[in-house]
């Protein structure tokens, strides 16, 4: 009797389990590419690591069209901040970056330490509404329809 109600798993079941696996995967937080986001009106198409280093070290304060650059730092302690300190600015640590910005204040390079954002959503919101804004984010965490322009980082 039980054999009459034999469960046929076959191809259908295998496909189902594959779907379960894919459905779980589609919601997972895979780390994406670290990119820069700028205002949609910004003409930049690609940044080099050297470009970003000059921008985030406040050595370059204006875009080519003369618009002042406003940087939004990643959240302190985040992976994006780690990428900024180790791969872009190469100062070794967040503590060194804080020290650099404080030194820059005393050298009259800047007036205040740049503001850091909570997450990619806040970064996108600020950059989208600030003509000179730029932030470093994980592309996979950018919420949809934010109105920012994603700019790849060459040789990152």
């Amino acid at each position: 009797m039980h054999s009459d109600k034999k469960i046929r798993w076959g191809n259908r079941t295998r496909a189902a389990f594959l779907c379960v696996f894919l459905s779980l995967s589609s919601g997972a937080a895979f780390a994406g590419e670290i990119v820069a986001i700028v205002h949609p009106g910004n003409a930049a198409t690609e940044f080099s690591v050297d470009d970003l280093k000059k921008i985030f070290m406040m050595n370059r304060k204006n875009w080519p069209d003369g618009t002042g650059i406003t940087i939004w730092l990643p959240a302190w302690g985040s992976d994006e901040m780690n990428a900024l300190t180790t791969k872009v600015i190469k100062c070794g640590s967040e503590a060194n970056l804080k020290k650099y910005y404080l030194t820059a204040i005393f050298q009259q390079k800047i007036v205040e330490i740049p503001t850091s954002v909570r997450d990619e959503q806040e970064a996108a919101r600020l950059v989208a509404t600030n003509a000179g804004g730029i932030a470093i984010v994980d592309e996979s965490k950018i919420p949809g329809d934010t109105g920012v322009k994603v700019v790849r980082i060459k040789d990152f």
Binding site: L22, S25, S26, A28, G144
Partner: peptide, 20 residues
């Protein structure tokens, strides 16, 4: 790394799983 987006796709796939 591959970027996965869209909770909507995942939801549809889940429904398909139920069906199968």
């Amino acid at each position: 790394t591959k970027i996965f987006h869209g909770s909507g796709a995942g939801t549809g796939i889940l429904i398909l799983c139920f069906s199968l």
